[in-house]
Write a protein that binds this DNA or RNA. Structure first.
Lengths: 214, 214
DNA sequence: CGTGCAGCTCTTGTATACAAAACCCCGTGC
DNA sequence: GCACGGGGTTTTGTATACAAGAGCTGCACG
């Protein structure tokens, strides 16, 4: 069963990401409880989580408002992701099992298939891409890394980036994944780290050129 | 006012760190509420936090037990700290203000004073050391980094390390801080990053040699 | 003697009630 | 006209009550 707390988290996060709640908007527990259709208790837990993930910030009194993310913030998120996922790739290169390697290959083939035709299936690309990165993080076998990265991988940013990707950008991602798989097969931690870091830095670049104002 | 939730967090964390609750011990909300002297609600929030910080893990059912940390875990924590605090130092080198630099110098002088005499004041050393690192993180001006590092800087590890430091090890820390201050004064981000990373890697080494079994 | 299931207990998840603190608005004094 | 309280209102923090699910115990049966 999906708990009421998770439902509240997903819905409130959705409100923020969709822009229904713009930066500075107060997040009142009771009002949100009415919207989501649960009581204050699970809403409260959801808000704590959103605060921890910097979707919301707490004012001097105990009140929460939607956080504002500027370009510097986005750059910092990508920089942290590059570091941490690079580290995850290095760990994964040392620990990966043959089965996990096969799973990565299959995942990346599905990803390539999604963008192979004339009309790339961006949604499927995103899903497989997400899965690919999750597999790498899983192979790194570090619970700490996993939770830290979970709070960093902001689906909205990925989405905004990918919807504006030109198709050969998507292809390039697939090729970088291939390189990563090669590094894993060779058990070369430094190589894997470098490929992953480059992969994510390029994603920031793509994001930047797609939305210049940010 | 310090909230009941914070009190519960501090007390339960204390129980775990003191070893009163050894790994595998179940953490039941009502029992802890009785111990701390508050109701289940704030205990629940405290437990969520402890879970997020990997002090406790959740079993297949929804129950929490005290987490077991092995040597690999400790190594991973130090590796992450080296990366993230290195990054923080680099950011700080670019952004630091003259005032913050002065504060760092004063802090490090206090730290040196604490270990200058024949009988080093380890408790004071630890407090000033903590403050020094917090000042650096503050100067890095990244809320994300601050929260990530907060969940990583495990006071117990620092304590266990420092209590076994030989005095010239403490002095060496102070000198490394001096180097860091020089790098900040020179606004040399790469230098600052390298010094900080080395500083933390040495701390892991000291911890390792002090407690070989872990 | 081992296995499976029924019933019960214990624990968590959620709702609601109450307490206390923060905010806001408005009137008052300067 | 503006700063400053004061009181009501809103909002969060905490306690408690209730519901639902997980796990344990012990008995029956193979």
């Amino acid at each position: 069963m999906t708990t009421a707390s998770d439902k509240a988290y997903a819905e409130i996060r959705g409100l923020i990401l969709a822009g229904d709640a713009s930066p500075g908007t107060p997040l009142r527990e009771e009002a949100l409880a009415d919207i989501v259709g649960v009581s204050r208790t699970p809403v409260r837990e959801a808000l704590k989580r959103l605060e921890a993930e910097h979707y919301a910030i707490r004012t001097s009194g105990g009140r929460l408002v939607v956080a504002a993310w500027d370009g510097d913030d986005v750059a910092e998120i990508f920089a942290l992701r590059a570091m941490l996922e690079g580290h995850a790739a290095a760990r994964a290169a040392r620990r990966i099992t043959p089965d996990a390697l096969l799973a990565l290959k299959a995942c990346n083939q599905a990803l390539q298939a999604a963008v192979a035709g004339d009309a790339p299936d961006v949604a499927r690309f995103l899903a497989e891409n997400r899965r690919f990165h999750d597999l790498v993080i899983g192979a790194s076998a570090s619970a700490r890394l996993a939770t830290m990265l979970a709070s960093l991988v902001e689906q909205p940013i990925v989405r905004r980036t990918a919807t504006r990707y030109a198709r050969d950008d998507l292809m390039r991602s697939a090729h970088e994944h291939d390189q990563l798989i090669q590094a894993f097969a060779a058990r070369d931690a430094e190589w894997a780290k470098a490929v992953m870091a480059a992969h994510i830095h390029r994603a920031l670049h793509a994001f930047r050129t797609a939305s210049p104002s940010k």
